[in-house]
Design a protein around this nucleic acid. Structure first.
Lengths: 212, 212
DNA sequence: TAGATTGTTAATCGATTAACAATC
DNA sequence: TAGATTGTTAATCGATTAACAATC
């Protein structure tokens, strides 16, 4: 049954499965089992089996899944065949890097334009995308029915930018600023918080050295 | 008791608390309660109280925590006062953006140098950091006792780079490539996987539109 | 003292893992 | 048929939430 709900944990493993299945290209094997995927990725096989079952029902006992078919089902589930438009706010270094990150289209993401407050950068292009003044944001969002907003401004302006995005009808925010954003019910904030990753890395090292 | 173990979930919330506490600067209030923090960040207050208790024991009933004291304890726990050296491999767009990301020092991370396979970029500087040939990696790691390796190479080379890093004595890998990395026991891989974030964003939009 | 807040102990919830039946 | 694999049902584990006692 399509549209069924999938846990965040499962969701975060799916792209990894997809990538692994694609990497098997050229090995000439038609079938692949959940067990094999689990083994390769260092995961429990029941987890993988459950995850795959939530995306596909083409698995057959003793055989496994037809590799290409499963790839298709994962791509479809992840929306790679249904491109979503996005806009990006904050054309600093990180923003520019994301604007010219050429693999997003493969993941079903199309950044239409960048926005900034610095008149110096208005009209310039980064990665083939125009940088526009903030004033044009709301209008463009509504006209193009953009659903995803990417925030790459300094932390102190992130909430303000977020509010503007939501005013423009944005329903999902990809937040690269290291701040908590308050949003109305129904809007998703996905934080790409480097401070969090650093905390986990640093804690690992601390533990490593305190225990041995 | 210092050095006690903290869950990954708790760990990921700590930087957010710290950031919020700092943002209270200038409000002139000496004390802050877990309840207030929870309210501001949209979290359950018991979660916050437990998290803070794992980092500090200076909380006092009826009063809460001395704001500046708690900030200090969080900074210390997160290792912001104990800089870790790191090296980065892959001086593409993302790699360069990270090399010149000037807030890392505040988070206790110091990127010593970048590495790449392209002779064109050897010797150039990005964000004040030299780009060196891969051959020099192992040696530099060992000599400087570098513990953190940052991978910003294309997926197909990530595992290979990871192996080289580990050979150089790296204990924690910050992986920006969208691939699974196999590492020996005791080495941590922290994935900054954009494909995962995109999957979560896209799924949210899908659910939004199927339910209403 | 009364009330706010901390911190702890027990209950709930959700995800992972284990055991097992179904099937090609 | 036997064995590998799927998918389901039950058990375990860990994190969150709820209830409550301690305290300033």
């Amino acid at each position: 049954m399509p549209g069924r709900s999938v846990s965040r944990q499962t969701l975060s493993r799916l792209p990894t499965y997809l990538h692994f299945l694609r990497s098997l290209e050229g090995e000439g094997r038609r079938y692949v089992s959940a067990t094999a995927v689990a083994e390769a990725l260092g995961l429990n096989d029941v987890v993988v089996r459950k995850d795959l079952a939530s995306v596909s029902s083409s698995g057959r006992p003793k055989v496994g899944y037809v590799r290409t078919e499963l790839i298709g089902e994962l791509e479809h589930f992840l929306g790679y065949d249904n491109t979503q438009e996005a806009i990006l706010v904050g054309a600093g270094k990180l923003g520019k890097a994301l604007l010219s990150y050429d693999v997003f289209p493969q993941y079903g993401l199309d950044i239409l334009a960048g926005f900034d407050t610095d008149p110096q950068v208005y009209g310039t292009e980064v990665g083939g995308k125009k940088i526009l003044p903030m004033e044009k944001l709301s209008n463009l969002c509504r006209r193009m029915r953009v659903r995803i907003g990417i925030i790459t401004v300094p932390g102190e302006h992130a909430q303000e930018v977020c509010d503007t995005l939501i005013e423009g009808g944005i329903l999902a925010v990809w937040n690269f600023a290291n701040v908590h954003l308050s949003v109305p019910e129904g809007v998703l904030v996905q934080n790409e918080n480097m401070a969090v990753s650093l905390a986990i890395l640093s804690n690992h090292l601390k533990e490593r050295f305190s225990t041995k």
